[in-house]
Simulated scan of single mutants.
Amino acid sequence: MAKVKYYYDESALSYRKITVNKSNYYRRIFLIFLAIFFIAFIGFIGFSQIIMSPTAIAQKRELENLEFNFELLNKRLEESSAILSQLQERDNNIYRSYFEANPITEEQRKAGFGGVNRYKVLEGYDNSKLIKSITKEVDILSKQMVVQSKSLDEIVALAKQKENMLSSIPAILPIKIEDLTSVASGYKMRMHPILKINKFHKGMDFTARIGTPIYASGNGRVIIAERSSTYGNVVYISHGYGYKTIYAHMSKIKARRGQEVKRGDLIGYVGNTGLSVAAHLHYEVQKNGISLNPINFYYGNLSLDEFAALQKASEESQSFD
Rank of each mutant, 00 (worst) to 15 (best):
Q161D: 13
K162W: 15
M165Q: 14
M165Y: 10
L166W: 10
S168W: 09
S168M: 09
S168G: 07
S168R: 07
P170H: 05
P170T: 03
A171G: 09
P174W: 01
P174R: 01
I177T: 11
I177D: 13
D179E: 15
S182A: 15
S182P: 12
V183C: 10
A184I: 10
G186Y: 05
M189L: 15
M189Q: 14
R190Y: 08
H192K: 14
H192R: 15
P193W: 11
P193K: 14
L195N: 12
K196A: 10
K196F: 07
K199E: 09
F200G: 08
F200D: 11
K202G: 07
K202S: 10
G203Q: 09
T207Y: 05
R209K: 14
T212I: 10
I214S: 01
Y215L: 03
Y215C: 00
A216V: 01
G218T: 02
G220H: 04
G220S: 03
V222D: 00
V222N: 01
E226P: 02
E226F: 03
E226A: 06
E226Y: 03
S228A: 13
T230V: 15
V234D: 00
V235D: 01
V235P: 00
I237P: 01
I237A: 02
H239T: 05
H239S: 05
G240I: 06
Y241K: 08
Y243F: 15
Y243A: 06
K244N: 07
K244S: 07
K244E: 14
T245F: 07
I246L: 15
M250W: 01
K254H: 07
Q259A: 05
K262H: 04
R263N: 02
D265I: 00
I267D: 00
Y269D: 04
V270N: 05
G271W: 01
G271Q: 03
G271P: 02
L275S: 11
S276C: 07
V277I: 14
A278V: 08
H280C: 06
E284C: 10
E284H: 12
V285R: 13
K287F: 13
K287Q: 09
K287N: 07
N288M: 04
N288G: 04
G289R: 04
G289N: 03
I290F: 12
S291H: 12
L292W: 06
N293H: 09
P294F: 07
I295V: 10
I295S: 13
Y298E: 07
N301W: 04
N301S: 04
N301R: 03
N301H: 04
N301I: 03
L302P: 07
L302V: 06
L302N: 06
S303N: 08
S303H: 08
D305H: 06
